[in-house]
Design a protein around this nucleic acid. Sequence first.
DNA 1: CTGTCTGATTGAAAGGTTTCACTTCAACTC
DNA 2: GAGTTGAAGTGAAACCTTTCAATCAGACAG
Lengths: 342, 342
Amino acid sequence: MVTREGRAASVKDVAAAAGVSLGTVSNVLNRPDRVSASTRTRVQEAMAELGFVRNESARQLRAGTSRTLAYVMLDASNPFFTDVAQGIESAAEAADLSLVLCNSGNGAPREEAHLALLQQQRVQGVLVTPVNPESPVLEEVRRRGTPLVIVDRTRDDRSFCSVAVDDRLGGRLAVEHLVDRGHTKVAFIGGPIHLGQVRDRLEGARQAWAAAGLPEDDLVVLATEALDVQEGRNAGQRLSGLPTTRRPTAAFCANDLLALGLLQQAIGSGTRVPEQLAIVGYDDIVFASAAAVPLTSVRQPRQELGRTAAELVLDEATNDAHQHQQVLFTPELVARASTLDG
Amino acid sequence: MVTREGRAASVKDVAAAAGVSLGTVSNVLNRPDRVSASTRTRVQEAMAELGFVRNESARQLRAGTSRTLAYVMLDASNPFFTDVAQGIESAAEAADLSLVLCNSGNGAPREEAHLALLQQQRVQGVLVTPVNPESPVLEEVRRRGTPLVIVDRTRDDRSFCSVAVDDRLGGRLAVEHLVDRGHTKVAFIGGPIHLGQVRDRLEGARQAWAAAGLPEDDLVVLATEALDVQEGRNAGQRLSGLPTTRRPTAAFCANDLLALGLLQQAIGSGTRVPEQLAIVGYDDIVFASAAAVPLTSVRQPRQELGRTAAELVLDEATNDAHQHQQVLFTPELVARASTLDG
DNA sequence: CTGTCTGATTGAAAGGTTTCACTTCAACTC
DNA sequence: GAGTTGAAGTGAAACCTTTCAATCAGACAG
């Protein structure tokens, strides 16, 4: 019956309708075995009749805690982060928690607003890929009692749990691969250069370059303003502008979006990939393998990243003897047509 | 001070620390103008001192409603839906509500679980791109008092607000464009065929085909099992397998993921796009224009879709005289290199 | 028939915030 | 100086659920 008399039905209404006490209704909800079968069905019928929905606020107020985990994503439109979210979700599901996603869209104010709300909601824990991992806001969150784990970033002091992927190693793998294929002049494309990710990948690239005994100046750095497709195209134009003799024969891009932009610009301007320009991306998003020339890329264990982060935050939430730890995953190079001619 | 004595600080603690009554603390929180400046700062200092975080459950319990909107996405890894979510977010922000995202991952049980929890949380309203728009679960949600709007789908009866895009028109636009370019044998690629979207886009395609006076049989339907990249590749192989005389010179794909898969397979097997095979996609996701051969696609006003849906759900939540309405947006063809040679 | 045990049910308290009718007090008016 | 006004602050009630000690009814033993 749709008896909507202003407010929603409460346990009290259900109790009245079923002719039992309010404690019994609660028992039906939480410990059905303690209630006789006949009463139980009577109560359940009353609930259905009245369209009763348990009020989570009241429940939580009493219980003191929610059954929710939250992930504040840096950029919901980057497939990398949605994959991470899927990993988190699988761990949350296993722990019988539900996951809510928030999107900061790379904006610090939005991130702060989301974090404030999540604290107020007393979520069990927060996972976040922060705009700035060094921000004091993160400390504040934990100081106020909400467990927090940093995802795909690390903090210089080791004051938080974090999960990330070894970006230096990733950079090394990419450049070693290119060196193996005989390239002796390579461009690194990425930026802003102050981002931890970009810095580390470049550093790894330089290590591999030096290890191969190649002259430092032949690893050219093209700094970009963002890690998106448009910037990839721009970088491509800058490459095309170079005289042939000084033009790199391969490019290592700090993420796949850049690589896809570069690829597009290259093909559009008649450059053959990989014959004239080999390309390595980073992240191995689903669109990398679906590119017209399937992209060689450095794969990160995205789902596992998420899953592990969720497990850490749960440990922090439930285990008194919790120790912060910084988990570092190992990336893996996936070679495809964009570097493999013939 | 990190005085964590078991439980978090409450208004009562703050009141005691600041030497005021509990009502005053509440006033500082909700009507700061009614409190003298000196008391206000004293209370605020006490809050900072104790690391006070307002308990949203208690607030909501008292207020009866939350300041939250929710969107249950069909597939968080499809950029189309994250763009819709961004539109919703902008409307939510304007109304000073926050948005939580849930992902059903195309699974009915997950969708149901999310909907149940959102009702319990007494969210202001729910937006959902349902696995099955005809599901009785949706009626249940509304019957129990939570406003609900259907996004990017429609229901046959008009019992819900919904926002969608005119898929028949989209199909017509795509095929008209191909006919204009002189194609007389075209493949429609999409499926599962029972999906409303796919059905309507195909129907529009057929209308345009018939209107051009072309023989019905020359619009070939290749049914796929899903709308993803892999199925696009598969479809490409099926096309390649056809004898040249019977092979379509153009393909209209029911979404961009299919189109990208098809494009990849085509280029990989040496088919020149668009000279030997023109391709039209649908959705105009960001990766469409970034494809190696930029994809002609039917653009849907994704952000506006989300924004409008959010406005409708808010109207349903706040306006007693609310009337359900089905908003239908107009798609637009964006012509790019995948159909434009020369 | 008394006493004991068990399972089912009850009723009241607690949890943190907001609201609102009420009190207090200082400043002002005539 | 009696009376009025307004601003500032107070305190109890209400929101809905869960928990737990207490009660009840009936079965059973002695």
